[in-house]
């Protein structure tokens, strides 16, 4: 890590900063530690935000953009805070065959976001998953813990309405 002598920039003591510092101190400064570090940061902060990535990049002496490039390569990382209701749409084989894409398109249209994003009011976040393990119900979507099978675009409206969203 780089050494700074004398007055640096004053550090604010946001809780996330302490969490990131704690994670960084557990890992070495090698580039190979990057993915485990990102996983731990996401576990603590729920998502990877810009300041956290900058902090990680600084510690590993990498470019922030490089770190972001690595993180976006993997589907497991998210870059916006999860919404109060986590909406997941399945695009696995069975759901794909049964029209999962249409369900996803309807969700994106109704919520006004793309998958991987969160609505402005923080109520809904949308993710794509590969299989929910209930292929007989395909196409499947899940809000929070509630699984809905045999979804259609019109059914999407009904489900979202129950959670106060979708208009």
């Amino acid at each position: 890590m780089r050494q700074v002598i004398g007055s640096g920039t004053p550090q604010d003591k946001a809780p996330w900063r302490e969490a990131v510092a704690r994670i960084l101190s557990r890992h070495g400064n090698e580039r190979g530690e990057l993915i485990p570090i990102l996983q731990n940061v996401q576990a603590e902060l729920d998502y990877l935000h810009r300041e956290a990535l900058e902090e990680v990049a600084r510690a590993l002496r990498l470019s922030m953009h490089d770190v972001y490039g690595v993180a976006t390569f993997y589907a497991q990382f998210r870059f916006s805070p999860p919404g109060r209701h986590k909406v997941r749409a399945c695009l696995g084989t069975a759901c794909h065959v049964r029209g999962g894409d249409d369900v996803m398109a309807a969700l994106e249209r109704r919520l006004g976001i793309r998958h991987g994003e969160t609505t402005k009011d923080g109520e809904f976040s949308l993710e794509r998953v590969a299989c929910m393990g209930c292929c007989a119900l395909a196409p499947v979507m899940v809000v929070g813990d509630e699984v809905s099978g045999r979804c259609t675009p019109s059914k999407v409206d009904e489900i979202l309405a129950r959670y106060g969203g979708g208009d």
């Binding site: 780089r2 050494q3 700074v4 002598i5 004398g6 007055s7 640096g8 990049a57 600084r58 002496r61 990498l62 470019s63």
Partner: peptide
């Protein structure tokens, strides 16, 4: 983007 630097002494202290 100063990750080039190993030891940095800011202007105030240099």
């Amino acid at each position: 983007n100063d990750r080039l630097v190993d030891i940095l002494v800011p202007e105030a202290n240099y």
